[in-house]
Design a protein around this nucleic acid. Sequence first.
DNA 1: TTGAAAGCGCTAACAT
DNA 2: ATGTTAGCGCTTTCAA
Lengths: 340, 340
Amino acid sequence: MGSRTRRSAVGVVDLAQELGVSTATVSRALNDSPAVRPELADRIRRHAETRGYVANRLARGLSASASRAFVGFVIPYVDTPAYSAVAAQCARLLSRDGTQMILTITENDPRRELQQLRELVASRIAGLIISPSTGILAESRRILGGLPVVELHRACGIAAPGVFSDDEQVMTDAVTHLAQLGHTDIAYLGTPRELSNGATRWRGIRRGMELAGLDPDAMAVRLVEPTRENGRAGAEELLARPGRPSALLVSGGAISVGAAEAVRRSGRRVPDELSVVVYGDPAWFALSEPPLTTVRVSYDELAVQAARLLSRALDGDVQLGAHLVRPELHVAGSTGKAPR
Amino acid sequence: MGSRTRRSAVGVVDLAQELGVSTATVSRALNDSPAVRPELADRIRRHAETRGYVANRLARGLSASASRAFVGFVIPYVDTPAYSAVAAQCARLLSRDGTQMILTITENDPRRELQQLRELVASRIAGLIISPSTGILAESRRILGGLPVVELHRACGIAAPGVFSDDEQVMTDAVTHLAQLGHTDIAYLGTPRELSNGATRWRGIRRGMELAGLDPDAMAVRLVEPTRENGRAGAEELLARPGRPSALLVSGGAISVGAAEAVRRSGRRVPDELSVVVYGDPAWFALSEPPLTTVRVSYDELAVQAARLLSRALDGDVQLGAHLVRPELHVAGSTGKAPR
DNA sequence: TTGAAAGCGCTAACAT
DNA sequence: ATGTTAGCGCTTTCAA
């Protein structure tokens, strides 16, 4: 038999009775309403503290016109720190405002995503942070239009603030770096252009190629949904191409892990036979030998900014734009002179 | 650009009116109560579907004696997949039952943990999955005693089911492996014995040493809170010891990443000068060279079992014990013959 | 400045 | 089998 009796919890009624005031006054005091005499308010708050009072969030959320009890965090994948670690970090940050974070996973499935969004609305979330699925539905967009939203990593064309990695410039830098080492056959493995970040990265790549006097349209390119398995398969295919690229440039965290595995399996010597640039979480690549040339982005910073933007959006601030977190090209031993 | 009014959401009252039945009947039909004529129930459910009805979870939770609307997930750290990836995976699994997961981070701080637990109770969670903080407070234990709980990774002595990595045997295996390679000066870097997993691992290590005819008490040992930074510092210290151990055995995911970094910095050649066994997520170590001998545990499996146990605990099943997920010693190139 | 009372949307007794 | 109604614990008019 399950344990019952959550009845022991003290509520506003108890506090009101014990202090000989009304529940309304208690509620006001607890919510820092200026309408209550400071001295009284203090006494109420102290008493609440003593009795270990914690407001029932459901009741509060149900009753209040606007409650900050819950926010949602909607991400496509579970196995990528770019999502899960940022989510956890946001949960930590948001809890400081007494806000609880509901985490949901779409598996990048638009229908599941819609379902999750509906259920989040049903939980009266104050707002949410989302990495939209690749083929987000119109109805989902409509729902997102109705509440404070912050986009993360991916944009889906709604008028909402967002936090993104500023990948265009760094991708250009990466190509430039490779070109300066004499590489002309550069292969690119990245995310689809339908994803906003895929489009951004691709722009950066193209510009880099053009700046280096290389033809972007002649590149060996493979764009895949960002999973480790796709990274592995994609890299294998690129490396097996007739042209035998001398450099492999990868964008996307999970993709990079898969790609690095494929590179190792291929037996190509890095950087003598193949130069490699990966993307993502430094922790993943901390142990590789040679150390990998990496596009690094701070997940911490992404989380901090996402939490901050959401917080401001909840405050009703509608003047918020996109916040770009600047990634950095960390040059290490996996990129070297092009073999001749 | 729909500026949505939250008011427009359809509720049981609307449905009831539209169908000319009472709200009670609607509620019953929607909750699959057998007390409603099947034909009517069907009609109600179809109509609800048509109108895009989604029950307000707050109202439901507030009203119902027991609601499965929310569960909690309480973890100490954000930057360890052993926690954050498992959390995300659980969110995915639990959503199949229509349960939303509230994620909270304790930072391994017992007071914060208590605060989070209180707030989760205030959200009327149906139950929770927790990795208890190192010095969990008595009051927290009391709260945990009052609802369905599943422990993850760490146990804190409450009568609750749990999901753990079965580390004792695999640690013994790891020591045996090293001993067979001729290592006698084995250093161990792991989690504190106050943590249940720290104690388990340490038992495995000792047994391994004894089986190999080595003195466990003579080992160089360093036990630290599981963070990457601690892993780095701990490994540095162990490697600098007078004895100059010929093998380093590490337990704990984040610790292992730090330790591997320290090993590289130390310049010791692996495995010629130093054999290394790390612990954790294969993805982290996928890129290291030489490939690392690793104790691997499946986070997916941990998540699946945790979700399953919680689900059964919510069903009132109290006969649940601990579920052990078997890690596996994956021998690779970072362990070799002891230098003489 | 405080109190009384009306909900928030739903479920669960209690009636019928 | 269905309807009526009383809450769940809080916030928030509306009065005083």
